[in-house]
Design a protein around this nucleic acid. Sequence first.
DNA 1: ATCCGGGGTT
DNA 2: AACCCAGGAT
Length: 237
Amino acid sequence: MSMEAVPDRVRPPGCPPKPETFVERLMMWDHCGKRSFPWRLTNDPFAVLLAEFMLQRTQAPQAARVFQAFLAAYPNPAAVVSADAGVVVSSLEALGLRHRAVRLQGLCRAIVERHAGRVPEHLPDLLALPGVGPYIAAAVHCFGWGHDVAVVDRTTARVLVRVFGLEPASARVHTDRGVWEFARSLVPQGRGKEYNFTLIDFAAAVCSVRPKHSVCPLTDACCYYLSDHTPKASQAV
DNA sequence: ATCCGGGGTT
DNA sequence: AACCCAGGAT
């Protein structure tokens, strides 16, 4: 009777997809949708860390404008620490979030002091650094050090929530524990890096805020698509 | 729960 | 004009 009392959500038939189906379709899509960025062409953990730092709430093409020049000028944490603060601020200004410049120097200082200037490999060490949260730690662990872990940000979380019909407890989907656990279960071992890049690109190009269903290879198994495009007996949309 | 920030997308 | 962007700190 009352809308609040509706029991379990009923998913339309056909979804969610099997995890292996999702991964397989995604990797197929990869062939035509993958993007290329300078920070993807390196395994240098500092380069990866720098990129992820610039990418916070910042679109990738925007970060790509300043990334290479910055890395060339400051190729390691020690160089960032010894740089003039004003210069660091001005070189990141075009990205907004000016406070990141100060944080970046603090982060690099911690790396110099705690890890002899080398970006650490393991998650607890990464997470303990100021300015490094769950996302950046996972990204460096995967993209820099080559470990097959889940990399969950707002955009990849959005994809998983939609396709699999997840109902995270938290509104901050990219920090939701359940979403992270589910994301971990999907990562194909041996192909983590490739998979995560593809998922990020898919989120940007297809499963965007306004999803592009017409070019999506997953509509027939997507909870989000099917719930919008499947007639419901009880409710009109 | 709020804040940061310029710039792209719709 | 509103919303979002490869988040994290307070």
